[in-house]
Amino acid sequence: MDDRLVAAFAIMEASGYIAPVLFILFHVLRQFLFIPVALVCMAGGILFGSILGTIYSLIGLTLLSIIFYFAIKSFTSFYERLLRLKEKWFGKSADLTTGQIAILRLIPFIHYQLLNLCLMQKNPQFKPFVRAAIISNIPLAFFYTVFGQYIKQFSPPIMVMILMALGVLFYLLREKVRIMSWNEFFPERNRM
């Protein structure tokens, strides 16, 4: 495990009643230390147990999403980079549902703030954004906190099967909309 992560969790273990607050704040700071979300959630399960670790991770991840919602408007260059990354990964007109974003959050190499941007574009108002952020963070916090200790024991074929299952879920949870052109909807009458 990363030395920074080990040091941070040693401090949290020794802090007693303040440990949950430090853990929640660590979720916000972990992005500046380049520590993956999954590792922090797994450590939450080790430090606080499955239930409290999931709750603290969910609070920390939701707080991080709220900070992103307000801060992204100030950092236009970062916002534009995320938009380019979104177009590169998902296409120009991609409109991901909250369920799809929840599934993508389970895949460790998908950029967390990119998914927050997708949520923000889908839910531009604050309250719907926070609701969608909580819903999409629940599987992430639960899965990595509860099952984190077992994930590292999975063999590569099992990991591939899990990623394929997540891909199928991602496809099934898509927004099912078909855009028809004017000519398709009103075909020209056959001339005699």
Rank of each mutant, 00 (worst) to 15 (best):
F90N: 11
F90Q: 09
F90S: 11
F90V: 11
F90D: 11
F90W: 07
G91I: 05
G91T: 06
K92L: 08
K92T: 14
K92H: 08
S93Y: 09
S93C: 02
S93R: 14
S93F: 04
S93T: 13
S93N: 15
D95P: 01
D95Y: 12
D95W: 10
T97V: 06
T97H: 05
T97Q: 03
T98C: 07
T98Q: 02
T98H: 01
T98K: 02
G99F: 09
G99K: 08
G99P: 01
Q100H: 06
Q100K: 05
Q100E: 07
Q100G: 03
Q100N: 02
I101V: 14
I101R: 03
I101N: 04
A102M: 04
A102T: 03
A102Y: 05
I103H: 02
I103C: 06
R105E: 00
L106M: 13
L106V: 02
L106E: 00
I107Y: 00
I107V: 14
I107Q: 01
I107D: 01
P108N: 01
P108L: 02
P108C: 01
P108I: 01
P108V: 01
F109H: 00
F109G: 00
I110P: 10
H111A: 00
H111V: 00
H111Y: 01
Q113M: 11
Q113D: 11
Q113W: 04
L114Y: 04
L114F: 02
L114D: 05
L114N: 02
L114S: 03
L114W: 01
L115H: 02
L115T: 04
L115M: 11
N116Y: 03
N116E: 07
N116G: 08
L117F: 01
L117T: 06
C118F: 03
C118Y: 02
C118G: 12
L119F: 12
M120G: 06
Q121P: 00
K122A: 15
K122D: 13
N123H: 15
N123A: 11
N123K: 14
P124M: 07
P124W: 12
P124Q: 10
Q125T: 14
Q125N: 15
Q125Y: 04
F126T: 13
K127V: 15
K127R: 15
K127T: 15
P128G: 10
P128D: 12
P128N: 13
F129L: 09
V130W: 07
V130R: 09
V130I: 15
V130K: 10
V130A: 10
V130G: 09
R131G: 13
R131Y: 12
R131C: 11
R131Q: 14
R131S: 14
R131E: 13
A132R: 11
A132L: 07
A133W: 03
A133R: 13
